[in-house]
Amino acid sequence: MDIYLPIAEVSVNWPFLVLLGATVGFVSGLFGIGGGFLMAPILIFMGIPPAVAVASQASHVVASSTSGVINYAGKKAIDFKIGGVMAVGGVLGALLGVEIFRYLRLLGQADLAVALSYLLFLGAIGLMMLYESLGAILRRVRGEVVPHKERRRPLWLYGLPLKMRFPRSGLYISAIPPLGLGLLVGILSAIMGVGGGFILVPAMLYVLRMRASVVVGTSLFQIIVTTAITTVLQAGRNQTVDVVLSTILLLGGVVGAQYGARWSGKFRAEELRAVLGLIVLLVGIQMGLELFVRPSDLFAFAPGVN
């Protein structure tokens, strides 16, 4: 049941990969995220070279997000206008991120950058999500009245130029914050091999205060554009995209994503967020642990020669 991957140059168990793709796809459909933050660490753990893992699973994210986007587009739950603005930022960020990643690999610091960004971003966002959603669950259990919701956005959002109307999101704000958000996510998508949904969704909800019903679909739309560009760039610049690996992953992934999207209606939003927050936090800690635990071997091969 093993298959040899032509670019990664390792032999892997393919039914396990299909299962992995399906599981991550399910999570992705359920929470409306790309799921890359889960996939990349597992692939690396399986012995696939990190550069190949990061680049190949970006194309898996494209596939599972595509089927997600089609689902949400049917429900008219995507704001293509703000998604397009973020995608422009995302493309710029991906261009920048692939070059940063090349440079970090040359310095031998790529794994440090990956570990640090996982720890910082996933740790912080996981904690925030967990705190917020557990609070909401506790209040509901105690039967307390939900405190008056501050619907105010940060004031600096109004001071910026280039104001645009985004009717579907119920927004009239400057184009700079969504553009900057896209840029950040684009860079992360190249370095961490993630779509960036775990940053996009909270930022769109709590910073931009978009209409909640369009958040997930719009973030998936932006993720498709960014990861598609990232995949092409990684293939073109670094030759690290393994099409066999990504095809196996996405066969499971698209099916999982469909089921995930159907199941998402069965749970309360805050419960979903609590679970996602926990997963995000655990992955962040797991990846960050290597910074603090004494490595079993002080020496390691640095990828990225030739």
């Binding site: 494209v62 596939a63 599972s64 997000s65 089927s67 995949t231 293939a235 996405l250 994503a257």
Partner: peptide, 21 residues
Amino acid sequence: RPWTYGILCVLLAAFTGWAAS
């Protein structure tokens, strides 16, 4: 042909996603 290869990978992925839905 790394660039063509990359574009085909993306198209394949997008097509699979579309077909599944």
